[in-house]
Design a protein around this nucleic acid. Structure first.
Lengths: 140, 140
DNA sequence: ATATACCCGACTAAAATAGTCAAGTATTAC
DNA sequence: GTAATACTTGACTATTTTAGTCGGGTATAT
């Protein structure tokens, strides 16, 4: 069970942005340098964050990205959804009558995985960007 | 964030076994048929479960595998560890002084991922095999 | 004008996953 | 004692996913 870089970088980048005055555009180039994330990869990620209305863009010189809301109001769960990385631990569909492995019944552990998904989603649902900054002054 | 088939099948197979009288060898062939899991793949998985003392094997005709302990005493976390699938959501090492991305400091979100790992491991730590069987008579 | 910085789809190398295969060995039933 | 069953083990492989890169844009500030 592993988190992929896309979600991880998305959170890292947005946390990075959160440290700057809101409405102050932060360029991907700067984020890229500070967080050691490939610029080209960041661009890909931010397109999704933009489409999902988590950030907005400011083009041109001195442009960059700006958070659309206060970090307090941006839940990590939204970020994950935005970059397409649903926290869905297994393949079997939640309510499908078809069952999980081609059989007509739910697999023996179906409820367990449902429960796990809810549990994990709950973690991200209850964390927002500003939570990441508390007492973390020594990091960057 | 996705669970791989190895861990999932391991749990499914052991849950399947749990329904039979303990000390009654259950063959992988039967599990394979009931759970629709490739026999050859199951063999691979059970070698690990055996090495980790979760099951023991009985060779020969009417042989199979037997749980070494009561299902109540087999935590899901053990099963995951046995099949090598540590729940470790990101790459950065817990206590390494080296930092996470080649830098000399922990990444901005380091604490978050640590917290997530603990949170998820906690889920598996508090579930055992017998938990999966309660009120699930209709499934198989 | 020109430099900065976002925009976007297509592409690709590398790694991980999800198995399969071959060639066994041990045990039991008959 | 031999056939059948079922575990044992390491190596191999196809497929999928991931983690990016590339190329060629467009908008804006100075």
């Amino acid at each position: 069970m592993k988190l992929n870089t896309k979600s991880r970088y998305a959170v890292m980048a947005l946390a990075d942005m959160s440290k700057f005055p809101i409405n102050n555009p932060v360029s991907l180039r700067d984020i890229s340098l500070r967080q050691s994330i490939s610029l080209l990869y960041l661009e890909q990620i931010f397109l999704k964050l933009k489409k999902n209305e988590i950030v907005k863009s400011v083009r041109g010189t001195n442009g960059g990205y700006v958070l659309r809301r206060d970090p307090k109001n941006i839940k990590l769960s939204e970020i994950f959804q935005a970059v397409d990385q649903k926290v869905k631990t297994v393949g079997c569909k939640k309510d499908s009558k078809k069952g999980c492995n081609g059989k007509s019944v739910k697999c023996i552990t179906h409820e367990l995985w449902d429960e796990l998904d809810i549990y994990i989603n709950n973690f991200f649902e209850n964390k927002n960007l500003s939570d990441l900054l508390v007492n973390k002054e020594r990091n960057y």
